[in-house]
Design a protein around this nucleic acid. Structure first.
Lengths: 214, 214
DNA sequence: GGGGAAATGGGAACGTGTTTCAATTTCGTC
DNA sequence: GACGAAATTGAAACACGTTCCCATTTCCCC
């Protein structure tokens, strides 16, 4: 998707109270930089060897911080990958907001969006695998990030359904978007664990879009 | 679902070649018993404390076998839980074959089946959580069990769509069944990781069944 | 520019999944 | 009933996520 860098970020500070006072809720610059290095190191390692290659000691070393510092910013490996996933999805949404997909009907636009998104995922299979695996084994303490990810994905699909017309989404549209997101996630899971080929993800999504948006 | 014991079983022997000769492909009685004890111990532990309570050393102790023996039968904790899940789903299918759900329309029958299945899952939340978590983080080497599980779940839904009329399922019916299964799995994941309440699983399924079967 | 709190570094230590290995037991075959 | 192959046991060892601890540094406030 080439949606590249920056963007996103809403939650996510170290889990202890904030210092200072004036910029309540924001991390000091050096802290933001550290956090970014950790996330970048995570993506780099994931790109090489997937979930298993993201070893916390290696992440710390690659980000040039101490292991304890990684844990200060991300309470677990799972959370680290989930935050990376949330950021990735947020970037994707931002990109799509700027470059809305073509298509006259809702089904066409949804198809176009998910096609783009998936070919981007296919270009980094190990990263995707790492994130999907973290997502699939998520625990209660990470429910907030999981929710954030699902909301972003649902939002992407809702936007595609609506197209340029920006009315408040219908109840029905939201439901359909949610179902499509669930199919998407399940399909990705099937792909990364080797049950289906990567084409299957797009096939599933197009089939379900066709079934519900006609 | 009270579908209780026995049943299922197709694959799943220890990963080395078979002894003897006459009963090709089947485990000696004592081996089958050991395997069963391991699975039962797994379910017992999962029922108490979910995924984290299923510790391989404890499973071995509870099943009264050595740790190495557990690993002879199940190559990993993930596989152990997945095989348990496959068995559970196979039992559910067998039960439903004997007690087909009521309903005049496909949507009603699907709704009835999934309602039953889910209230059974809700009765053992920790077991469900353990299995769903294993499923969600499944790796390539367990693709076979994952496929078996999804096929059983899809089969259950397909049967519900068809009702008493046993024609070969339509292409369209298979596609719908697959999508419903995917929604089911995603929804379960949302439940066990605390993003949604357990009612949400049934809501999602009914909504999608309604959307596709009308 | 000193005081104090929070953050960071560095590294040991712990828990649990997984592997390994030698000794022993089980079981089919002759 | 003895032989040999496979299965089982018991225990140690390893890998990696996670936790802990303390010395050092950074940063805010006075």
């Amino acid at each position: 998707m080439t949606a590249g860098e920056s963007g996103s970020s809403d939650a996510a500070e170290p889990r202890t109270a904030q210092r200072g006072s004036h910029v309540e809720g924001a991390l000091a610059r050096s802290q933001a930089a550290r956090r970014r290095r950790v996330l970048d190191a995570t993506l780099r390692l994931a790109a090489e060897g997937g979930f298993d290659a993201v070893q916390m000691r290696d992440v710390a070393a690659a980000a040039d911080v101490a292991l304890g510092t990684v844990y200060r910013y991300f309470s677990s490996k799972e959370r680290l990958l989930l935050e990376a996933m949330a950021e990735q999805q947020a970037d994707l949404r931002a990109y799509l907001d700027q470059h809305p997909p073509p298509g006259a009907t809702a089904a066409e636009r949804v198809s176009a969006v998910l096609h783009r998104a998936n070919s981007s995922l296919r270009r980094h299979p190990d990263v995707t695998a790492a994130m999907v695996r973290a997502f699939g084994s998520a625990q209660q303490e990470n429910a907030d990030v999981v929710r954030r990810v699902t909301e972003i994905m649902t939002g992407i699909i809702t936007a595609a359904i609506q197209g340029t017309d920006r009315h408040a989404p219908t109840e029905r549209e939201v439901r359909i978007a949610r179902i499509l997101m669930q199919v998407w996630l399940s399909s990705l899971n099937g792909w990364v664990c080797g049950v289906d080929g990567p084409e299957r993800v797009v096939e599933d999504l197009e089939a379900s879009a066709r079934l519900m948006l006609s």
